[in-house]
């Protein structure tokens, strides 16, 4: 059976290429001999599929209420998928909207849909720089560009410890809750961290997924070079 990688509202959540993580998952699955396809789910037009994995990217603040309303309309299906253990990767404001609330810092608040035990509030300054996070999947690299932290409720684990950058402030980045993973690592985080992608795919297919094609080798060599340059001079974990 073909694994459907659902990307939620890509027309408004692909500002930094976050939605393309669905493409990364599908391609790596193909490269490992599995059958997978990206299924775009536009706002108010989410197709009737059983997703194998879900990607929710980041957007601009002006679009947050609209996206939140789209998520609310999807809530019964979304909770059923999550209860069934479907992995969901949420990036930036995607993660924030899954939480309880977003304090925009200008006196207004956008309510989240309350699936994640945490809430977003302004950082002292906007952060735009490299971000390195030590997580269970390994040392994750990427870029962050945001102005808010995400405060987790007591006892809720973060995705990992920040090595370089800000993440969600307080030395950690993101969240793990049920089958959901949230992060500030924006853009093609799964392409830059193939081990992270393959860990998600292992959950999708219930077995180790090992991309072996020439494209996989070329992609992983490029990712390794990016990682090596960014990690140069950092203490190993």
């Amino acid at each position: 059976m073909t694994a459907a990688i659902l990307t939620l509202f890509p027309e408004v959540t692909d500002v930094n290429g976050d939605a393309q993580n669905a493409l990364v998952l599908a391609r790596r699955a193909e490269w490992a001999g599995e059958d997978a396809v990206v299924v775009p789910a536009p706002l108010w037009a989410v197709p009737d599929v059983q997703p194998a994995a879900i990607v929710l990217g980041s957007s601009v603040d002006s679009a947050l209420p609209r996206i939140r309303d789209g998520l609310l309309a999807l809530l019964p299906r979304l909770t059923a998928w999550l209860d069934a253990g479907v992995p969901l990767l949420a990036i930036g404001t995607g993660m924030e909207l899954l939480g309880s609330r977003i304090d925009l810092g200008n006196g207004s608040v956008v309510e989240g849909i309350g699936l994640l035990p945490g809430s977003a509030s302004p950082l002292a300054v906007r952060v735009t720089d490299d971000l390195v996070v030590d997580a269970a999947e390994g040392r994750l690299i990427g870029y962050e560009n945001h102005a808010r932290g995400f405060r987790l409720d007591a006892g809720v684990p973060a995705l990992g410890r920040v090595v370089t950058g800000v993440g969600d402030g307080r030395g950690v980045d993101g969240v793990r809750h049920g089958s959901m993973i949230g992060t500030r690592l924006h853009g093609p985080v799964l392409a830059k961290n193939p081990a992270f992608a393959d860990a998600l795919l292992a959950r999708v297919f219930g077995r180790p997924v090992v991309p072996v094609s020439d494209q996989a080798k070329a992609a992983d060599a490029a990712a390794a070079a990016i990682r090596a340059r960014l990690l140069k001079g950092l203490p190993s974990r």
Partner: peptide, 18 residues
């Protein structure tokens, strides 16, 4: 180079040399 190569490879472009 590696960043744009990564995008091209995932989008199905054959990258011969970086």
């Amino acid at each position: 180079a590696e960043e744009i190569a990564l995008q091209l490879i995932y989008q199905g472009v054959q990258v011969v040399r970086i």
